[in-house]
Design a protein around this nucleic acid. Structure first.
Lengths: 218, 218
DNA sequence: TTGGCGTTCCTACCTCGGTAGGAGGCGGGC
DNA sequence: GCCCGCCTCCTACCGAGGTAGGAACGCCAA
């Protein structure tokens, strides 16, 4: 099982460099090159490689959009983004686009090779500096600890809470739960009392900050 | 500059294994061991090592809580969590607790050594399998694209929007912006019209889903 | 059995939020 | 100059949201 790689970069020197670098690895084969995003998508659709080595800055179609289109064609292709700049927006967008890894061009060569094997195996890898940023972003997430009194909520109150947190009116909540709007009011009054909140708006804010909705929103 | 390491694990065999493994590295020195979380915190406070190798499952005090306390004492200490299980909750909690890395015990030894050097240098590193999960979690975040009409909002309307999204009443918003509550009402009416929303609750939901607040909430 | 809790529903009342419609001031562009 | 967009503020009105207080039912544990 050799790992079939397509190299997408607009500089031919860079592509040649990768070819040379990977030529020494018996389990890795560079099967094609692409000099812009459009070509990259075409090659991916035609060859279905194991791994796409993808530069971000490319003419015609940038690497991020190319990644999205490639994965739309064949989601089994593993895209390893390889770029010079570790700008935050690039990283987040690349990961959202579905990239399996993010490696910097000035990382040591053996790290790139190991990254190719890792993503080919179905795992994921980020450059250490990039990992740093992703973790920072990740931990900065507004997942505040649920306040005292949260666990006093009954099952039914949680039902109401979840719907309220999605912006529904009392009548809509009642309709979805097959109860009257006045009952919904009762539940909400209890919720606000237990959580020491003033109105439903504060409840909605709290729900999002604590990640109350994250579970059932698949 | 040698990297000074404390190994915290409740099994003495494991500690001995790490000592042996790291003995071959000239730039790494194991300066102490800890067999539970309490000892780990004590050793960290006493020796201020560069890196703490931290198991999660430990008696007395688990590795996650120990990590929090260590970083409260000296935030320069880099904690590298090293455990057998890559359970999601462990990972997220460890990163939130401030860990700089997450390595599995069945990763290859050279990867552990390289991880120690990486976190000692101030970067971060996750096991490939762990990286996979973090990315999955990360991209699953509810960062919906802002709806059409969002960019039609004026600067002042955005001011109001941001405060509204944090749960303030019209009067409170007016007070903070030095305008009257009725003016706030006017702005909100315009916001709702432009975004095609029914009431402020839906606006709050939208603000959180699109991450409107992420920027200025430092 | 009795009491408590959770769920359901009601009436009555008040406040706040949102709409409608208008008005004045200020600035920049035509 | 004039108009337009933005910001400010107002009155008046209505409906939704929230509170207070009560009531009925089922369930379960003491």
């Amino acid at each position: 099982m050799t790992i079939r790689v397509v190299v997408a970069d607009d500089q031919s020197m860079v592509r040649a460099g990768f070819r040379m670098l990977l030529a020494g690895e018996p389990d890795i084969e560079v099967v094609a090159e692409a000099s812009n995003g459009v070509e990259a998508v075409e090659q991916a659709a035609r060859l279905h490689p194991t791994v796409m080595l993808m530069d971000i800055r490319m003419p015609e179609l940038n690497g991020l959009e190319a990644t999205r289109r490639i994965l739309a064609v064949d989601e089994r292709i593993r895209v390893l983004v390889l770029t010079t700049f570790d700008l935050d927006e690039y990283i987040y967008e690349a990961l959202r686009a579905g990239a399996s890894g993010f490696v910097l061009k000035d990382d040591p060569p053996e790290q790139l090779i190991s990254a190719i094997r890792i993503v080919a195996a179905g795992d994921a890898l980020l450059s250490p500096a990039v990992t740093q940023r992703v973790i920072a972003r990740f931990t900065r997430l507004p997942r505040r600890a649920p306040p005292a009194g949260f666990k006093d909520l009954t099952e039914r109150e949680l039902d109401v809470f979840r719907l309220m947190a999605r912006g529904f009116s009392n009548a809509e909540i009642g309709h979805q739960l097959f109860i009257s709007g006045t009952t919904v009011k009762t539940h909400i009054t209890h919720i606000l009392q237990k959580l020491h909140l003033r109105d439903r708006v504060q409840a909605v804010v709290l729900a999002h900050e604590t990640g109350l909705l994250d579970d059932e929103r698949e």
